[in-house]
C-alpha cells in the first residue's frame, strides 16, 4: 500500500492511497483539527465523489472504530506467540459486585496474577485503564495471564 502525503498550503495535509480493490480514499487534516474523509470518484480520479466533514471528536471515534479490530488481532497474535498465555474478554454482568467500583478495588493483579490490558465499552476501546477507572455493567474486560489467572479473574468479577 502506497500512502501519499501532500501538503496543502494554508489548509493542512492530505493523505491518500488506493485500496487493493482499486478505490482511492484519503483524509484531509486541517490545521484546526477538523478532518475531511475523501472518497475519490471512479470516473474522474482527480475529483472526490464524496467528502465527509468530521470534527476532531468524530474523527477520533471513526479512527477507533477502524482501529479496533486491529487491537483484537494483535492480542490474538500475542497469544500465538507466547505459549501458555491466555487472553479473554470477560463481561461485567449487571449485579456484579464491581459494577460502579474501580479497577483498583478489584485488585485483580494481586489476587489472580492476571493483568487487565483494556476495557471495551459501548464499542470503544479504553487501552491500559488506570486503577481509578470504574467498571460499568456491560463492560468487556480484556485480561491477559495464565489460564488459571484468567479463570480466577472471571470469578472475581462475578462474585467479588
Amino acid at each position: 500500500m502506497d500512502l501519499e502525503e501532500t501538503k496543502l498550503p494554508g489548509v493542512g495535509l492530505r493523505h491518500d492511497f488506493t485500496t487493493a480493490r482499486g478505490r482511492r480514499i484519503g483524509v484531509v487534516s486541517q490545521r484546526g483539527g477538523d478532518r475531511e474523509l475523501l472518497l475519490y470518484s471512479q470516473d474522474d480520479p482527480d475529483a472526490c465523489h464524496a467528502v465527509v466533514d468530521l470534527d476532531p471528536d468524530e474523527a477520533e471515534v471513526l479512527a477507533e472504530l477502524l482501529g479496533q479490530p486491529r487491537v483484537v488481532e494483535r492480542l490474538a497474535r500475542l497469544r500465538e506467540q507466547v505459549e501458555g498465555l491466555a487472553t479473554e474478554g470477560i463481561y461485567v454482568e449487571p449485579g456484579s459486585p464491581f459494577d460502579g467500583r474501580t479497577l483498583g478495588d478489584a485488585a485483580i493483579r494481586s489476587r489472580t496474577g492476571a493483568s487487565v490490558v483494556a476495557l471495551v465499552r459501548a464499542g470503544e476501546v479504553l487501552p491500559s485503564p488506570a486503577p481509578s477507572q470504574r467498571f460499568q455493567a456491560g463492560d468487556k474486560v480484556v485480561v491477559v495471564g495464565t489460564q488459571e489467572g484468567v479463570r480466577a479473574t472471571a470469578d472475581v468479577l462475578a462474585n467479588g
Partner: peptide, 17 residues
C-alpha cells in the same frame, strides 16, 4: 465546494502561495 481533497487543489493553492 468540497474540493480540498481533489488532486488538482495543491496546484491551485501553490499558485496562490
Amino acid at each position: 465546494l468540497g474540493r480540498l481533497g481533489n488532486r488538482e487543489t495543491p496546484s491551485v493553492l501553490g499558485i496562490l502561495v
